[in-house]
Amino acid sequence: MLKIGSYQFKSRLLLGTGKYPNYNIQRESVELSGAEILTFSVRRMNIFEPNQPNFLEKIDLKKYKLLPNTAGAKTAEEAVRTARLAKASGLCDMIKVEVIGCDKTLLPDPVETLKATEQLLEEGFTVLPYTSDDVVLARKLEELGAHAIMPAASPIGSGQGIINPLYLKFIIEQSNVPVIVDAGIGTPSDATIAMEMGADGVLLNTAVAGATDPVKMSKAMKLAIEAGRLGYEAGRIAKKPYATASSPKDGISVGS
């Protein structure tokens, strides 16, 4: 079970809802992924087109926990406002704090992320900050009371997989709250590696939405994350420099 704040989830895959080719593919992808947490963004509504469809209307909201993000915010103040708007929907109290500090890399602003996390925790939100692979920052976010730490595997939407496994491992080892690897996942094996390392979950979006067949990829990600988690729980064998035979040495009936 994945426990975030007062919530419990069977699935360790958190799925983003952006950039799918269409709502049918998206709905099927969400279903096959087994995800129970879906991320969303908060944006101005097109008030002049009341009939424009919205993905929220296409899914059974009772089946999912919404995790709105504060994407678009560049300061703690903007992130806090977005979080308050999201909460006023009455649909959720979880928030992914995402304060971007660099337009090119979309890496988070550590100072503003810390400030926004502190404020939103004070206001009673369940706070999941998106962060870089900074080990000390991850610790400070946990010390503030963040309910999960979400370090990026690599830049958002880059599909590069885990580019700093050492620091990610440090973060996983030191954390007492769930660590959810967020951003940069490209393939199912990337997700498996994150889970084998001991991550508590994986949040991804583009890897599924941008795949040639998003529906198939969402299923692949589900299996990859389950496999990685099982592998982690099972405990891997130690690496050795030389071979150790799997078959018995005695009773060989060929040769002398």
Binding site: G18, K19, Q26, F40, V42, I47, N69, A86, S89, L204
Partner: peptide
């Protein structure tokens, strides 16, 4: 007045 809603995002 600002009227906002949830849209797809990661």
């Amino acid at each position: 007045i600002e009227i906002v809603n949830f849209v797809g995002g990661g």
